[in-house]
Design a protein around this nucleic acid. Structure first.
Length: 804
RNA sequence: GCGGGCGUGGCGGAAUUGGCAGACGCGCCAGACUUAGAAUCUGGUGGUUUCACCGUGGGGGUUCAAGUCCCUUCGCCCGCACCA
């Protein structure tokens, strides 16, 4: 067969489209398989080889599942709201709507060229009215349930993009979109109360099959810690008051070792007792200095503690009644715990550094370390701690201290999370309008459900305002409206939702994408959920994956989805690096264009190569010559059509075929695509060596390879005279008995040293094999004149004769 | 600093989990075909002082047997980062 890949690929892509081969059916009696890949952001640059890798894994698995008789849902869509499109639109003057449509068209044709088996009837576009209606609807439900609130706080702000960012969007102190430094700014912000779901998100992880790294990163991001709150009374101007400073600690057991307190520079207690503090100027100066520091500067100076002692204000340790100084320092954050800590220099590294620098007492309360040199954070016997003295375990000491604090009414057990509430509004144009109205009389009022979608108005000048206000604020007819509650004059919210909104529930819409009454029917959700297998990038683990689990769990709690967790299984693909071994980037000029590869070698080669290049989960550099190797492989596969004759099995190949079916079947499930392809390469080498195979065997080969190189395999399958297409044919079965060879090669060792191999019948007994080994020349000479101490036998593997 | 991962030929990577290290592919070498090249095919390809010995970052250990387990050390990558 002549392997004219462009003609073959076009032919089969057209045929699949005509036949609707990849449409998930509504036949709910069939077993289902819902495979999900992260839908792309349709950027102007078009598809990247990274996209292909991200989709190829579940592409192969989905194709195999179809052949195994499943009703497969393998959908695709476009996460199209967001800044890159908007910035491009501002630069070029083309409206974001138009930019988005162009990019979606480009992506669609590129994806189709690769032959992905997506169900194109279920495409979602997050910027479509029929879609974002439901994004707004879910937001409104959250608003109704009290999960949406507005607050003026210090937030992450990107001066370059002119938007407020969530914690997730500003990891490492850099803007997720433009990578410039984030500044802290006091702003009016809409929040989603994701912290209320912290425990549920944590517990949900126990029920799902996620890559261990994914699970761990989410756990760390949520950052649950158990500890205690305690109140330290304030001593103002020398006399103890009724007011107190509240702290959070994970080590209440060390409370007798507290020698000072530290509060964040922005802590409100400073304002409250401004006139009682005698060195307020010094405090103000310090606070100002801190505000100027960038995130980067702060992290660079981790070890070098700074701070100022507050004069005129002291605190009383509730454990022993001792008066201690209070410092302000930027190593305590206002955003975590209570913004105030009790400092135990003997048993905390940071407090230790601070105490050393400021010459504060260090009192050991746990034995085991040397506090002259460093803080001791381990376990040990309690000392200098009154009623805790002699206790040997941290757990016990904590319990006792909590009991004491409880009895005195000055403290109790507490739980804290690192995760913060989700800053949810963006002062930008290309996003879902937030469906809220501000009424002077009624406050914040949700736009009525029947008025959704609240449409994003079309406007010409959608650049963000210099003062950081949303572009929508410029449209008076949009802003001015009537209060849905009292009918009086009101103003519409002009901010939009962040990019992550639309992607937080898209997997639900795929189940029933054309529904106009609900985001998806109960029936469809019940059948398709949960997503059986979700594959995506590691970069989304503490962003999209957390957000979408939160939205889904909320919908579960209000009875709108039937399962607690949306994704039963989550895996991640590794990056494709440039040929130079470095991450691909435009500036480095090492980006590989998948279209060129398809032009030159064909989609099947691209697909096979991307899965063959290495472990699916690891990063691997692109290699043009290895692509050629895959082309050679497919050429050889095409060549089999000339060779195939007759029916049944070729005796010399039969066991190899069964072994290969077994290996490929199993490897696909573990995403070990590279070894599955290697096994098929080995088989083809063997076939060429033998020089013949039957048509039945070629059919098996075509079906095994079909998930990887579907176009070529369809062509071969058709040439073999099959009526049904290969994609919908049955996955080959293997016979375990036929995977076992009649004879096996056994390694012979003497004292663990390899001495050669012997061939014996499979499942030979220990005695037989050892006798045969001893009879071999190599072994015989090695053990001659020595005493056999031990004989080790691993069935069908090896013998090891230990001599003295 | 804390958490996780990794280190195997010239390169990408295998190794059914403690049992013949280097599957498969690339590259390279030789040969065939060709005026020549490309493509293709055949054979070879860890190293060395080749009847053998040495080899999975280094050192040590457990074991009949270690890439795999334990200790130690070096190097790289990723995540979080003063989280109380």
């Amino acid at each position: 067969m002549k392997y004219d890949f462009s003609a073959i690929e076009k032919k089969w892509q057209d045929r699949w489209e005509q036949m609707g081969t990849f449409k998930a059916t509504e036949d709910y009696s069939k077993p289902k398989f819902y495979a999900l890949v992260e839908f792309p952001y349709p950027s102007g640059a078009g598809m990247h080889v990274g996209h292909i890798k991200a989709y190829s894994g579940l592409e192969v698995i989905s194709r195999k599942r179809r052949m195994q008789g499943y009703n497969v849902l393998f959908p695709i869509g476009f996460d199209a709201y967001g800044l890159p499109t908007e910035n491009y639109a501002i630069k070029t003057g083309i409206h974001p709507r138009q930019v988005t449509d162009m990019n979606i068209e480009k992506f669609t044709s590129q994806l189709k060229r690769v032959g992905f088996s997506f169900d194109w009837d279920r495409v979602v576009d997050t910027t479509e009215e029929g879609y974002y209606k439901w994004t707004q609807w879910i937001f409104r439900k959250m608003f109704d349930e009290g999960l949406v609130f507005r607050a003026t706080t210090l937030v992450n702000y990107c001066p370059s993009c002119k938007v407020v960012l969530s914690n997730e969007d500003s990891q490492g102190g850099k803007c997720d979109i433009c990578h410039s430094d984030i500044v802290q700014k006091s702003k009016d912000v809409w929040y989603l109360r994701i912290t209320e779901y912290a425990d549920k998100l944590l517990q949900g992880l126990e029920k799902v099959d996620y890559l261990p790294d994914v699970k761990l990163q989410q756990e760390n991001w949520i950052g649950r810690s158990e500890g205690a709150f305690a109140n330290f009374k304030l001593s103002i101007g020398g006399s103890v008051s009724d007011d107190h400073l509240r702290i959070y600690t994970t080590r209440p057991d060390t409370m007798f070792g507290v020698t000072f307190m530290v509060i964040a520079p922005e802590h409100p207690v400073i304002e409250k007792y401004r006139d009682k503090i005698t060195n307020i100027d010094a405090l103000d100066a310090y606070k100002e200095e801190c505000a100027k520091k960038t995130e980067f500067e702060r992290t660079q100076l981790v070890k070098d503690k700074t701070g100022v002692c507050i004069e005129g204000l002291r605190a009383v340790n509730p454990a022993n009644g001792k008066e201690i100084p209070i410092y302000i320092s930027d190593y305590v954050m206002m955003g975590y715990g209570t913004g105030a800590i009790m400092a135990v220099p003997a048993h905390d590294d940071r407090d230790y550094d601070f105490a050393k620098k400021f010459g504060i007492d260090i009192i050991e309360v746990i034995k085991g370390g040397n506090i002259e040199e460093a803080a001791y954070t381990g376990d040990g016997e309690m000392v200098n701690s009154e009623f805790l003295n002699g206790i040997a375990t941290k757990k016990e000491a904590i319990a006792k201290m909590l009991e004491f604090l409880g009895e005195k009414g000055v403290g109790e057990k507490g739980i804290q999370y690192k995760m913060k509430d989700w800053a949810f509004n963006r002062q930008r144009y290309w996003g879902e309008p937030i469906p809220i109205v501000h009424c002077e009389k009624c406050g914040m009022v949700g736009v009525p459900y029947e008025e959704l979608p609240l449409k994003l108005p079309t406007m010409e000048n959608f650049a963000p305002g210099e003062g950081g206000e949303s572009p929508l604020a410029k449209i008076d007819s949009y802003v001015n409206c009537k209060c849905p509650k009292c009918g009086g004059d009101a103003k519409r919210e002009t901010d939009t939702m962040p990019q992550w909104a639309g992607s937080s529930w898209y997997f639900l819409r795929y189940c029933d994408p054309h529904n106009t009454e609900e985001f998806a029917s109960e029936e469809a959700l019940k059948y398709w959920l949960p997503v059986d297998w979700y594959n995506g990038g590691m970069e989304h683990v503490t962003r999209h994956l957390i957000y979408s689990r939160f939205w889904h769990r909320f919908l579960y709690d209000i009875g709108k989805v039937p399962v607690e967790e949306p994704y039963a299984k989550r895996t991640a693909q590794g990056l494709i690096l440039g040929p130079d071994g470095v991450k691909m980037s435009k500036s480095r000029g090492n980006v590989v264009d998948p279209n060129k590869v398809v032009d030159e070698y064909g989609a099947d080669v691209l697909r096979v190569y991307i899965l063959f290049m290495g472990d699916y989960a690891s990063a691997a550099p692109w290699s043009e010559s290895s692509v050629k190797g895959c082309k050679r492989f497919l050429d050889r596969v095409a060549g089999l059509t000339e060779m195939a004759k007759g029916e049944g099995a070729t005796p010399a190949l039969e066991s190899s075929f069964h072994k290969t079916i077994k290996k490929v079947t199993r490897d696909i499930e573990e995403m070990k695509f590279n070894t599955a392809i290697a096994a098929m390469m080995s088989l083809i080498n063997e076939i060429y060596e033998v020089g013949t195979l039957t048509k039945d065997e070629l059919g098996i080969f075509a079906r095994l390879l079909c998930p990887y190189a579907p176009h070529l395999c369809e062509e071969i399958w058709e040439e073999l005279g099959n009526k049904e297409i290969c994609t919908l044919s049955a996955w080959p079965e293997y016979d375990e008995a036929k995977t076992i060879d009649a004879s096996v090669e056994i390694a012979m060792q003497v004292c663990g040293k390899f001495k050669g191999t012997i061939t014996v019948p499979a499942d030979s007994s220990k005695d037989d094999v050892i006798a045969a080994a001893k009879a071999s020349e190599k072994v015989a000479s090695a053990i001659e004149g020595k005493t056999v101490v031990k004989e080790i036998f691993v069935p069908n593997k090896l013998v090891n004769i230990v001599v003295k």
